[in-house]
């Protein structure tokens, strides 16, 4: 008797435990529904859209890979694509140098506990709290060729010959925007790198010091290898952000990537294709736009995946 009730209790307990284990899986459902609705569904919708011919906003016949072919081979679409693609690459490279390079250096200085470190940390992060549209507008004023603060300053300090129509000249417009973006993202980089520095065990550095490592040697031999996780995160984030660069270009140069497409990026080009120009002057090409969105998604995910894999291996080797 005793034995039977015991085993029944045991079964009950087991069931309880199973339910508990199983019920945990229900918790992500709300998040998954939202994710599915706003991320997965549009992704697949764009994928299906890209296989159809579009007449304005009405879906036409199934055309297979024609949109993709047109995107890469038919002028002027292919020209726009490679032009924008080149700009995205430049965006990434310059962001890595100016935003992340500078952020790394600044984080190191703050980490070394100079006076006013807290204040600096907050100041670097402040731009990040502004809306990108506000940032774009502010810098548009600063960079205005005739009354903007930058040109006025150059004049005042006797460097008048360096004055430029910064956002109007194709040679400087894109670089100006990337620098504004770097200024905007600097504080975030500083935070990530600072957190990285702070997680490095003190003993390691002390040991290094005892072994005679100083200054640069310390940074190169001890800090950078231990900072790989932070560097990896910032690189991936910057990569994704560079290839999705849209807001600042749109806010400062409009949906045509003006002047003369010299600040065009893939995301701005996508906007133009899928939604038409902003002032109602042009028609839409939903099929081509969707194809571009798919290409962009594949490119970003493949490269990010490969990079993460490569870096993980490196970490294990260490």
């Amino acid at each position: 008797m005793q034995l039977a009730t015991d085993s029944a209790k045991e079964v009950k307990k087991q069931k309880k435990r199973n339910w508990k284990r199983w019920s945990i899986h229900l918790f992500p459902i709300p998040a998954l529904i939202i994710y599915g609705l706003f991320v997965v569904y549009p992704l697949f919708a764009a994928l299906t859209y890209s296989f159809f011919d579009w007449n304005g906003m009405v879906r036409g016949d199934f055309v297979g890979l024609k949109n993709f072919k047109d995107l890469f081979t038919l002028e002027p679409f292919s020209g726009y694509f490679w032009n924008a693609f080149g700009h995205n690459i430049l965006y990434f490279v310059l962001q890595m140098i100016f935003q992340n390079g500078l952020a790394f250096a600044l984080a190191y200085i703050i980490f070394k506990k100079i006076r006013g470190a807290e204040f600096l940390k907050i100041s670097y992060f402040l731009p990040r709290l502004l809306s990108v549209i506000v940032v774009g507008f502010l810098w548009k004023l600063i960079l205005n060729p005739n009354y903007g603060a930058l040109n006025v300053l150059l004049e005042k300090i006797g460097l008048g010959h360096l004055q430029e129509a910064w956002l109007g000249d194709p040679d400087t417009a894109l670089i100006a925007i990337i620098l504004v973006n770097s200024w905007y993202g600097l504080g975030f980089g500083v935070l990530i790198f600072l957190a990285g520095f702070q997680s490095i065990p003190k003993e390691l550095m002390e040991a290094g010091k005892l072994d005679g490592a100083t200054g640069l040697a310390m940074v190169r031999k001890i800090l950078i290898p231990l900072m790989i996780p932070s560097i990896m995160i910032m690189t991936v984030l910057t990569f994704i952000q560079s290839f999705e660069a849209f807001e600042l270009v749109y806010a400062m140069q409009g949906s045509q990537g003006e002047p003369y497409h010299s600040t065009d990026t893939l995301a701005v080009y996508f906007y133009r294709l899928a939604f038409g120009g902003s002032t109602g002057g042009s028609t839409t090409a939903v099929g081509l736009g969707s194809a571009l969105a798919v290409v962009l998604f594949l490119f970003i995910s493949i490269f990010t995946g490969l990079y993460l894999k490569y870096m993980q291996k490196k970490q294990v080797d260490m």
Partner: peptide, 10 residues
């Protein structure tokens, strides 16, 4: 002057 950098507002 610098017309290439001037927009509507300017």
């Amino acid at each position: 002057e610098n017309y290439e950098g001037l927009g509507m507002e300017d």
